[in-house]
């Protein structure tokens, strides 16, 4: 089982590496959306600092949605997903590995970009560290919960907008707690509580989402 999971993991990484340009697009989108905000709101550093955490998180959610469909779409189209489902390896484990690979390849680059964006939006250093912590804990949650909806909409031709419609309401608590943590950091207050709640949500989804994703894939594969 470990061998096959390993193989799937390496295969997904290799595939992602070969599709570098496609992976770049959500990142470009992320930067672009964030640079639109100062243009729309005005360059006042104080206002930017105030809206910064929210803007970064909203942009992160939107750009993660953009790349989300890649998670299973190609495998679904060329039939390799069916092969994987027929194999002896338990599907929830496979799915977990695939989600992790997807997170590594399409979300971690966003995290690496985040210092630049913190500079753009005039975040203080305390705020930046809080932001990074929330992103580290929160984005895996995005991928895990998002994968359920991706699995459900796989068979549909135009699932993109529907995916956003399904997922955005579900992500609201994460957005609230994450931005609250950064806001607390900006006031020099402790933000452990918010991080703990995000961590709890991550753990719950880690325990339950793989099974939901596996079921969703079976529904789509019919």
């Amino acid at each position: 089982m470990r061998d096959s999971l390993n193989a799937i993991f390496r295969r997904d990484l290799a595939l992602a590496y070969r599709q570098r340009s496609e992976l770049m697009q959500p990142m470009m989108f992320f930067i672009l959306v964030i640079s639109l905000f100062p243009l729309g709101i005005g360059p006042n550093p104080e206002i930017l600092q105030k809206v910064g955490p929210g803007v970064i998180w909203v942009a992160a959610i939107l750009s993660s949605l953009l790349g989300m469909e890649r998670l299973f779409k190609d495998d679904f189209n060329d039939g390799s997903l069916e092969q994987i489902m027929l194999s002896a390896t338990p599907l929830p484990m496979v799915v977990l590995v695939k989600v992790f690979a997807h997170w590594l390849t399409s979300i971690v680059p966003l995290l690496i970009l985040s210092p630049l964006l913190a500079l753009f939006l005039n975040l203080t250093e305390d705020m930046y560290w809080a932001l990074l912590c929330t992103l580290l804990l929160g984005t895996p949650l995005l991928s895990l919960v998002g994968a359920i909806a991706v699995g459900l909409t796989l068979g549909l031709n135009r699932g993109g907008v529907l995916l956003a419609l399904l997922l955005l309401p579900v992500f609201i608590p994460l957005l609230i707690f994450a931005t609250a943590a950064v806001e607390a950091a900006s006031l020099q207050l402790p933000y452990n509580a918010q991080l703990a709640i995000i961590g709890a949500m991550l753990l719950i989804s880690l325990a339950m989402a793989p099974f939901a994703i596996a079921y969703a894939l079976r529904v789509s594969q019919n």
């Binding site: 359920i148 459900l152 399904l166 309401p169 609201i172 609230i176 707690f177 949500m201 339950m208 939901a212």
Partner: peptide, 17 residues
Amino acid sequence: VMAIVGVVNLPIIHFSV
């Protein structure tokens, strides 16, 4: 599936809001 995901989220959404 989506309805159940929503109902798991509903209390979280409620308290977070």
